[in-house]
C-alpha cells in the first residue's frame, strides 16, 4: 500500500473509535499532573518543590 493509503487509516477511524485511547491518556496525564503539581501532602510538596515553582504551579 502507498504511504498515503496507510496513513489514512488513523484519519479514517471515527472519533468514537479514538475516544478510548484519548480518555486513557487524558486520565493518565491529569492523574500525574495532579500528583506532581497539585497534591498537598507535605512529602509530595517538598519532593517536587523546585519543579512546582519552575513550572509555575500554584504552590504554598
Amino acid at each position: 500500500m502507498s504511504d498515503n493509503v496507510l496513513k489514512a487509516s488513523i484519519a479514517a477511524q471515527s472519533v468514537a473509535e479514538r475516544a478510548i485511547p484519548v480518555m486513557i491518556l487524558a486520565m493518565l496525564g491529569v492523574f500525574l499532573l495532579y500528583g506532581v503539581g497539585f497534591a498537598q501532602p507535605d512529602v509530595l510538596h517538598n519532593a517536587a518543590h523546585d519543579g512546582r515553582h519552575s513550572f509555575a504551579f500554584p504552590c504554598h
Binding site: L32, L33, G35, V36, G37, G51, F55
Partner: peptide, 8 residues
Amino acid sequence: SNVITGVA
C-alpha cells in the same frame, strides 16, 4: 518531578 511533569 520534572520527568513526571514531562510524562503528564
